[in-house]
Structures are given as structure tokens and as C-alpha cells.
Design a protein around this nucleic acid. Sequence first.
DNA 1: ATAAAGTTAAACCATATGGTTTAATATTGC
DNA 2: GCAATATTAAACCATATGGTTTAACTTTAT
Lengths: 118, 118
Amino acid sequence: MLSSAARHLDDDDDLDRVFRALADRTRRALLHRLACEGSAMVTELAAPFEMSLPAVSKHLKVLERAGLVSRDIDGRVHTCSLAPRPLASVEAWLSFYRPFWSDTLDALARFVEQDDAP
Amino acid sequence: MLSSAARHLDDDDDLDRVFRALADRTRRALLHRLACEGSAMVTELAAPFEMSLPAVSKHLKVLERAGLVSRDIDGRVHTCSLAPRPLASVEAWLSFYRPFWSDTLDALARFVEQDDAP
DNA sequence: ATAAAGTTAAACCATATGGTTTAATATTGC
DNA sequence: GCAATATTAAACCATATGGTTTAACTTTAT
């Protein structure tokens, strides 16, 4: 079993990759396409974009390394699917901060800020 | 007023900046520090990190440009605070995908069950 | 006035990113 | 066998990123 520290580093690595993958509108558009219209092969996924096929292929690989896309290779056709699990990790990370943006708890946020003063 | 298309591009720009800002563990640690212990000046924020002060200063600027940190300048002291608004945008973006990861199989099972019911 | 403190600016470096174009590699179909 | 299809690999380019060190700037304190 991994030490807690090592697992924590892994978690950080995972979040790095997932947030990095999400930080590009082309990749977000690819995820959206997969979510709305389901799995598709690389050529289909690349068609709506103005960039070259290799560019989209590289974007898909970034998504795949982040665990956000899975790939089923059948002959020469690579069928890509949405793999939403890492988004649950994002949600988990985000949930820690929910109290800070929820409007009802704005007062709490201010209180914490003031509580920091001597 | 902006056209819908222009506003959408702005949204994409915002998400690009926010996801990019979150894609670094040092910056996530800074946000966590601000959330847990409240506002602090740059030197205080930089202290726990092994990197140089200018490096942390640059990370803070990335967070600030993403809207995740606000800065109050008083003399030579820059007090940084968590600015959680953009995290609500992340949550909004993410919520579209929640049906895909929140017990998708359970939901499908319930659907099939209902469909089978007399 | 001078020194110290808090912060950023500048210049620099190595590596990553996002794109291109031109191969190369498999697989399928005639 | 041969051509077309689906995809990646490679080489390349421009720019961004994350870090460094040294310098500059402003404010505070003695």
C-alpha cells in the first residue's frame, strides 16, 4: 500500500492532468461532443474543428492521459468515449470550496477573514 | 450589449484561465491556504513553499488574472484573499456532466426496473 | 537620511504546449 | 497486390510556463 504522502502526490498529479486537460476550449468541446452525441471515432470528432487531424488527435491523447476519454481500438478505427470519473475528482476538490462561494455563507467567509486578524 | 457569440467566447476565455490556474499544485495549495487560514500578505503566503518569492508572486498573479484571488494594496503590503466566484463557474460547467458520473449505472438500473414494471 | 521590508520587474533558462506539414503504420476493400 | 482509409509519429515552429537570480521600486522605521 502506498503511504498517505505518496498517494497524496498521486492525487495532485491526477488533478494537474485533469485541470490541464480542461484548460483548453477545444478539449472541452470534444468532451461536450462525446457527452451529447456519444462515442465516435477520431475522424468524426475532428471534423467540426478547423484545425488539422493530428492536432485533434493530440488533444484526444491529452484527454486520454487525464482519464477523461477512453479509447476502444477496433482495426484502424479508434472509438473514443467520455470517461467521466475524473470529473468526480474535480467535483470532490471543488466541494471543499463550496461554502466560500455560496451566497448564504458570504458572511461566514467574511467572518473567517476577520477572525484572522489579531 | 455583447452578442451571444462574443459572450460565449468570453466564457471560454474565463474557463481557460480558471482551469489553467487550477492546474498547478502550488496554486491549489495557495487557494487552500487562503481558504483555511484567511487572507495574508504575499510574504506570508510564500513562506511555506520551497520556491523563491518571485515564483510565488507570479503564481498569485496567475490566480488573480483568473479572478480566484483578490488583492488589497496597503502601502507596501499586498493582502491577498480568496475570490471564490470563478469556482462557481467551474461548478456550473461541471454540473452539465454530473449525470454522466453520478451513479450512471444505478440510474440506468432504476430506469430499466421502471420500464419493466407492470 | 539611510536602511530595511514587501513586492514586482527584468532577464534568462529549460521545458511544455498547441499548432503545422509531411511521413509512416495499420487495416480494409476491390 | 494495390489503393484508400484511419490514425499516429516525427520534425518543426512560435509562444507559454515555471522556475531562477539580480535589480528596481515603494513604503516604513530608526
